[in-house]
Measured scan of single mutants.
Amino acid sequence: MKVIFLQDVKGKGKKGEIKNVPDGYARNFLFKKGLAVEATPANLKELE
């Protein structure tokens, strides 16, 4: 799953980066803790 990092995550990505991460990791950790959002067209547009 492609995500946009909202904060630096040690060993995974830095704020503003767009990266592919495993689905479970994204849903169960990154999204729940507010560290990233899914890289949807709407979210990508907001990032610009």
Results as ranks from 00 to 15, higher is better:
D23L: 15
D23E: 15
L6P: 00
T40L: 06
E48R: 11
I4M: 09
G16K: 02
A42G: 12
K12R: 15
E48F: 13
G24N: 13
P22I: 07
A39K: 02
P22G: 08
K15S: 07
L35I: 06
A36S: 02
A39P: 03
K33N: 14
V21W: 03
V21D: 01
A36K: 00
N28F: 13
V3F: 00
K33V: 08
I4F: 08
I18K: 03
I4A: 03
L47R: 08
A36E: 01
Y25W: 11
Y25S: 03
L44K: 05
K2P: 08
P22T: 09
K14F: 13
L35T: 02
M1V: 14
E38I: 08
K12N: 09
K15H: 05
A39L: 08
G34K: 11
N43D: 06
A36T: 01
N28M: 12
A39Y: 13
K45T: 09
Q7F: 14
E38V: 08
R27Q: 09
K32Q: 10
T40N: 10
A36P: 01
L47S: 07
I18R: 03
K14V: 10
E46Y: 15
Q7P: 00
V9P: 00
V3Y: 00
D23N: 13
K45Y: 11
P41R: 09
A42R: 11
K45L: 13
R27I: 13
N28V: 07
K33F: 15
K19L: 14
V9Q: 01
V9S: 02
I18T: 07
V21Y: 05
G34Y: 09
V21P: 00
T40R: 05
K32T: 10
T40I: 06
A26M: 06
T40Y: 06
A36V: 05
G24M: 13
K45R: 14
P22A: 10
G24Y: 14
Q7K: 14
L44N: 05
E46Q: 14
K10W: 14
I4T: 02
G13I: 04
A26F: 12
Y25T: 04
F31Y: 05
T40D: 06
G16N: 07
F31A: 02
K12A: 15
E38L: 12
I4N: 01
K2E: 09
N43Y: 09
V9K: 02
G11P: 04
I18V: 13
A39M: 07
L6G: 02
N20K: 10
G34M: 10
E46V: 14
L6E: 01
N43M: 11
L30S: 01
D23G: 13
F5N: 00
K45P: 06
K33M: 15
D8P: 05
K12M: 15
L6R: 05
E17H: 05
L35N: 01
N20D: 13
L35P: 01
A26W: 09
K15P: 04
E48T: 14
E48L: 15
M1D: 02
D8R: 05
D23A: 15
F5G: 00
E48V: 14
K33T: 09
G11N: 09
K33L: 15
L35A: 03
E48Q: 14
E17R: 03
A36R: 00
E38R: 10
E46K: 14
E46R: 14
A26K: 02
Y25L: 07
T40M: 05
L44I: 14
L44M: 11
M1R: 07
K15F: 06
E46N: 12
N20F: 15
Q7N: 08
E17Q: 11
K19T: 08
Q7Y: 13
G34N: 09
F5D: 00
V21I: 07
P41F: 11
G16R: 03
L6D: 01
F31W: 03
A36M: 01
K10Y: 14
A36Y: 00
D8F: 09
F29I: 11
L47K: 07
F31V: 06
T40H: 06
K33E: 11
D8Q: 05
G13M: 03
E48P: 09
F5W: 02
V3A: 01
Q7D: 07
A42T: 11
V37T: 07
K10P: 15
P41M: 12
D23Y: 15
G11K: 05
K33Y: 15
F5Y: 07
N28T: 08
G16W: 11
G11M: 05
V21R: 01
K33S: 10
N20M: 15
V37D: 02
D8N: 11
K45F: 11
V3Q: 00
A26S: 04
K19I: 10
F5P: 00
V3G: 00
N43A: 12
G11D: 08
P41D: 13
G13E: 01
F31D: 02
K14H: 10
K15R: 12
G11R: 06
V37P: 02
D8E: 08
G11H: 08
A26L: 08
K12L: 15
F5Q: 00
